[in-house]
Design a protein around this nucleic acid. Structure first.
Lengths: 212, 212
DNA sequence: TAGATTGTTAATCGATTAACAATC
DNA sequence: TAGATTGTTAATCGATTAACAATC
């Protein structure tokens, strides 16, 4: 008999950071409890959907009362694996790469990009936002040294797949891919795609055909 | 009798740039025709889905033959409104803002960010990647002058909603929002959200619970 | 208590995938 | 011609939304 295989709905997972941000704001305001109705109102979502999303984390609310904000924040943070810092490396210190190295919200949300790599030998030996930049030849050694499992990929699309292979060889099992290239990696390697042109297409098409 | 209201499926729209990129590569390789089967294979998609997506643009293929690559590229480009450059402004010349100003693929995909704004008076009067940077006080005047309709928002989340209001007042009807803030704008203003933490959550949660 | 809210099951909606006739 | 491919309708799948009993 096959397992029911309860899979986690990714749309729900992707909404969790928005809840987290809001809950932290409520907490700063001194609130202790919150209802799904209120969260839904703030984020223009359906209250039932918020309830379903939050139940993912295993937290329970109380009828008439709502949820304890502190517990809810904790549950989301643990669910996302943001209770411990994930150390990551970044490849490609162009404009986008540097922007991500300097993106402060990552720090308080479980991501610590501790080193960067670039093909340009002139950049090797420098630092960016306090993080060392190494040449590509050091990638395998440095990644192994710190047992890094996550890589942020901000190289030109033309070399993305080649670099991805090196990353996998170096032991990386999760790639945050900011290039438009589709990566061919083994099944055990997770790829999260951020496609700027896809997003721009979404806006542009809607503006072009206002009824879209 | 209500209109059938054939709405455009946004997931399809968002896949179009990937097709476009692939088709341009095929064209550079000297190909003239392509089948959905081949496109689907390259992008690991379902061939029927590719066919549905492409039919959005109104283009027709021929059984047994496939599609003419040139016509297909043209149809996608027109559908997305990328046949003419859309002039846009950017607010917030921090790390992420600068990265977007320097992001080259926008140019060949219908987006031209022609000016930038920043609260820091020291940055006013400078240029970034050849684009002038102005103070916030000039926003309304400069936007009206060029009849700008699209704004790229890369300010801190805490001021995002305030800036968004200024943008709307200045005549902007489409906001590409790179902040985590939810913007409250009138119905006629389109917002396209890019949420880095949402994406990081998607990767992090899957890595934390490998079965997710 | 009355009623706001949770948790859960059922219904709806929309996107993806399968099936298949038409066609080159 | 045979068969690969398109275009389209039907089936499936998964996410969102509605309904409602339980509860504090």
């Amino acid at each position: 008999m096959p397992m029911p295989a309860r899979v986690t709905p990714m749309p729900s997972v992707r909404r969790l950071p928005a809840y987290l941000r809001l809950l932290r704001r409520f907490q700063e305001d001194g609130d202790e409890r919150v209802s799904c109705t209120r969260i839904a109102g703030e984020l223009s979502l359906d209250a039932t959907q918020v309830r379903k999303d939050l139940s993912l984390t295993g937290i329970a609310g109380r009828p008439r009362i709502g949820y304890r904000i502190h517990d809810l924040i904790q549950a989301i943070v643990v669910f996302l694996g943001w209770d411990r810092q994930t150390e990551a490396l970044l490849v490609g210190t162009g404009n986008l790469g540097r922007a991500l190295l300097g993106y402060e919200p990552f720090g308080v949300n479980g991501l610590d990009i501790i080193m960067a790599f670039d093909v340009d030998p002139a950049r090797a030996g420098t630092t960016l936002f306090g993080r060392p930049v190494y040449g590509m030849n050091e990638l395998s050694m440095r990644a192994a040294e710190r047992a890094l499992r996550v890589a942020v990929l901000t190289v030109p699309g033309s070399v993305a797949d080649t670099v991805a292979r090196s990353l996998v060889e170096a032991g990386v099992t999760g790639i945050w891919n900011f290039t438009p290239a589709r990566l061919s990696v083994p099944d055990h390697v997770l790829v999260e795609q951020v496609d700027l042109l896809s997003s721009w297409a979404g806006l542009s098409a809607r503006m072009t055909r206002r009824t879209v």
